[in-house]
Design a binder for these strands. Structure first.
Ligand SMILES: [Zn+2]
Ligand SMILES: [Zn+2]
Ligand SMILES: [Zn+2]
Ligand SMILES: [Zn+2]
Lengths: 144, 144
DNA sequence: ATATTACTGAGACAAAGTATCGTCAATCGC
DNA sequence: GCGATTGACGATACTTTGTCTCAGTAATAT
């Protein structure tokens, strides 16, 4: 039952709800992820959890992604970046190409347009991906 | 001058216009790419140009991408896929997750919404990425 | 024809994972 | 509580999608 294992971590709660185990290793990894408000890469997490195997970090990230508590996005060159999924509802991200800071955004207009496009498309739409690349205020200010 | 080297290949013409050389190796690679109406992966091209080094294929693809005669996109899992850029104008792609077939699409509404979003964004928009994933008619029909 | 420069192939290296496997730990049944 | 079962772990090899280096070769310039 949840009460015995309850944590204040949304990441851990999410995997527990799906029947995965909460282990000390996963606690540590979840902690490192939750300390990354602006997004993170898998290797950054590896660097912050010494003693934990790289494969285990990748397995945990994959798990958190599967249960939809972290978002995976792509930089302009395709390099992956992750961020904690704070909302839950369908959304997209702005990513600063200078510092990597990630912010969520929702644009219902875009979702409606996508729905309307379905008529023009050969086949059935099964999903979409969208990222907006920005230079954030901090990077703009420091680039004088 | 162009006349001495003129080809019927948009890919080769594009790199020649930027001062790169047209070599027999690049002719072969461009030929293989232009035989791929539904998109291709780099490794598929490697497989179709025996005798050409893998690094050379990747260098050529990068070059064609830089001069904007091929488009690079991402499958849902992030795996890269390429397609010949037949239009030139800004556009996005629908990609069939069954067979990989790529089609261009333009949606001026989306571009306008993106422009409007700039006001809500922390910083300056520098670019965006969007892909629509579909199951194409052919794959729908053969999945009975 | 020679000099210059770009291009090429081989192979090492890199980033972002995934697969295998023997060991170990968390949970379940009693 | 205690052993059995199942899942998780770490190490390491392997895969994919490239990039880098370097010596040799082809294309252009004069
Ligand atoms: Zn998000
Ligand atoms: Zn959306
Ligand atoms: Zn295109
Ligand atoms: Zn666009």
């Amino acid at each position: 039952m949840r009460s015995a294992l309850a944590t204040d971590s949304d990441l851990l709660n999410a995997i527990e709800d799906r029947g995965y185990r909460i282990t000390s290793t996963r606690r540590v990894i979840a902690g490192a992820i939750e300390e990354s408000p602006d997004g993170f890469t898998a290797e950054q997490i590896c660097g912050r959890v010494p003693g934990v195997g790289r494969a285990t970090v990748y397995r945990a990230i994959k798990l958190f992604h599967e249960v939809e508590v972290i978002c995976k996005m792509a930089l302009p060159d395709g390099a992956p970046r992750y961020a904690v999924d704070t909302g839950g509802r369908h959304h997209h991200h702005t990513i600063c190409t200078g510092c990597g800071a990630v912010q969520d955004f929702r644009a219902s207009t875009i979702e409606r347009v996508l729905k309307a496009i379905e008529a023009d498309v050969d086949g059935q739409i099964t999903g979409h991906r969208m990222e907006i690349y920005v230079t954030c205020q901090t990077c703009l200010a420091s680039a004088d």
